[in-house]
Design a protein around this nucleic acid. Structure first.
Length: 545
RNA sequence: AGCCCGAUAGUAUAAGGGUAGUACGACAGAUUUUGGUUCUGUUUGUCUAGGUUCGAAUCCUGGUCGGGCUACCA
């Protein structure tokens, strides 16, 4: 049980809200969701699920300048894809009237004032953490004057930045957020939902907690950086005498070899370091989806990383473990030779022109998956990596004089190596053992190595995109200089490959295991003529030369 | 400097005063027609100094280290 669940159970035991649990997931629609959001989504929806509560999806859309419906749509699609359904779909902008009324209430109580100071002046007034701030010269305007001014602000009488509404709290507080925080600012900007109805917009601190309260949220979960905001959150709720939602903070997710801030991800997209928010190298939900990750694997990951207050850096290997674990159970095995120009293996004692149909099991982990037919003939492609002219001691693959099994077919022995003018190996002449046919092997020969292959006469061409980590260092954000200096220049390698003919039936999004190579998903760029595969993750490889 | 948060194997995360456990990783072995999977085993930990207590990872105090706070962003 994590500490949040502990709090919920305590509250339940104490009948805090008549045993009601109501959470919310509050994204700002100014970017795509990433794996860090998935942690929050799983926690919030998971809590409601575990304790019989509800979860609202609420867009925190109080800054029209950066927000857009494109993001609203992608966020909804991503949450659904992750497997969650919200009780209500709300927008902070739904509450603009209420929030405005709250502001007037505060003014009337003498707890807010209109300030004509500039941003710079306000910054100076705030002082610094070790010294108290100074009061604004406008701090003691009368209630009537403040009301009048605020109404004029709303009516559009002033330009952007001319005035702000500030809460009157405590300019000497050691908590900087208490030093008369700005709660409304003037922005003559078009809002993606309210259009031009407003020219003043509430700040986060004057919108989030109140929205929670309006929705009667019982447990409002956010990340650690909001801890200093909590006293303010409580202060507004107390002064406004509204439903007492409570805020709890957990550590955000950090993953090795990537960045997780929306600002940085936005840069990667806008500056073309990746192809878009859904680039398979991105830690976004849409990127992971395109990469071949499943919702189940992401939920499993979120389950395993836990929830706590200490800052953490999760090894991306754990995410990979989660997807391998699922794909191992669920995907068909197929053969693909991932080489631009693979080695041609010629079986000299196999009849020219003959084709045999091999029946190869789809998934040894799942007997119900059945078998498929794979054509075998005299010439097959094999991986360049599966041959070494001078092999090290424990090399189980092809080498002069060495025998291997061609997966699902015969055992062959390498007799002769053919090279081109540059000395590059182009062909291996082999002989096969006729009695070693898979499933009816009477040869009595035991080979250590089994390799995959694709019949030359039947092979289909495919494009394969091999992805590696986007960054070369574990924590790009903590390194010297700009994080972009640490982008991995080899994070994407696009190659042509030879694949089994029956792969032509696959649809976009389908996942397979290329035997001995990894898990791959059919990309949306696939056409009728050319399948495109994204490598989701490699297989574990315990072979060390 | 002031205030706030945190500290348990390499990485995460449990243990609510009573045997420090789990997962991932790493290493070793077994099985294997994927050097995959599976199975078995091994490895490594309570930041520090005091205090309270029969007993402290847990409670208290000081220190150390890490992080946050001084946007008309959220």
């Amino acid at each position: 049980m994590n500490f949040i669940e502990q709090i919920v159970e305590d509250d339940l035991a104490n009948q805090i809200h008549e045993g009601r649990v109501h959470t919310r997931f509050p994204p700002e629609p100014n970017g795509y969701l990433h794996i860090g959001h998935a942690k929050s989504i799983c926690l919030n929806f998971g809590l409601a699920d575990t304790y019989g509560g509800q979860t609202n999806l609420r867009f925190d859309d109080t800054n029209p300048v950066t927000e857009d419906t494109e993001y609203v749509d992608s966020i909804k699609a991503d949450v659904r894809w992750l497997g969650f359904d919200w009780e209500n779909e709300f927008y902070a902008s739904d509450y603009f009237d209420t929030l405005y009324a709250f502001a007037e209430t505060l003014i009337q109580k003498g707890l807010a004032y209109v300030d004509d100071s500039t941003a710079e002046e306000i910054a100076v007034q705030k002082g610094n953490p070790s010294e108290p701030g100074q009061e604004s010269p406008y701090r003691n305007r009368s209630v009537e004057e403040n009301l009048e001014l605020f109404r004029q602000m709303r009516a559009g009488a002033f330009g952007d930045g001319a005035k702000v509404l500030r809460a009157k709290v405590d300019m000497a507080s050691p908590n900087m957020h208490f030093r008369d925080p700005i709660i409304y600012r003037i922005k003559h900007a078009h809002h993606h939902r309210t259009g031009d109805a407003w020219c003043i917009y509430p700040m986060y601190d004057f919108a989030h907690g109140q929205s929670d309260s309006i929705e009667k949220i019982t447990h409002s979960i956010c990340t650690l950086e909001f801890i200093p905001h909590r006293p303010l959150y409580d202060w507004f709720i107390e002064k406004l005498a509204i439903f007492p939602s409570k805020q709890y903070e957990m550590a955000r997710l950090n993953l090795t070899y990537t960045v997780m801030s929306k600002r940085k991800l936005l840069q990667l997209v806008h500056e073309g370091h990746v192809t878009g928010w859904d680039d398979p190298r991105m830690p976004t939900i849409s990127g992971l989806r395109r990469r071949g990750y499943t919702p189940e694997s992401i939920r499993e990951f979120c389950e395993r990383i836990g929830v706590a207050k200490r800052e953490n850096m999760i090894d991306v290997g754990l995410l990979e473990f989660c997807i391998r674990e699922e794909l191992n159970r669920t995907t068909d095995r197929v053969m693909a030779v991932l080489d631009e120009n693979p080695i041609r293996l010629v079986i000299t004692n196999y009849p020219d022109g003959q084709t045999e149909t091999m029946h190869i099991e789809n998934n040894p982990e799942d007997p119900s998956s059945g078998a498929r037919e794979v054509p075998f003939s005299r010439e097959v492609y094999v991986e360049r990596d599966d041959f070494m002219e001078i092999p090290p001691k424990k090399y189980f693959r092809l080498a002069p004089g060495q025998m291997v099994r061609l997966k699902g077919a015969y055992i062959v022995r390498c007799d002769e190596v053919v090279k081109d003018a540059d000395g590059t190996v182009t062909q291996l002449n082999c002989t096969y053992i006729p009695e070693s046919r898979s499933g009816s092997d009477t040869s009595g020969i035991n080979v250590k190595g089994t390799i995959h292959w694709v019949s030359v006469a039947h092979a289909k061409e495919a494009e394969v995109r091999l992805y590696d980590r986007l960054f070369q260092v574990e924590d790009p954000s903590s390194e010297e200089g700009n994080f972009k200096e640490y982008i991995n220049p080899n994070s994407l390698q696009v190659i042509r490959a030879k694949v089994e003919p029956n792969l032509g039936q696959r649809q976009i999004g389908d996942r397979v295991q290329f035997i001995r190579k990894g898990y791959f998903a059919v990309d949306q760029d696939s056409t009728a003529d050319l399948l495109v595969f994204n490598r989701t993750v490699t297989l574990k490889d315990s072979w060390k030369k």
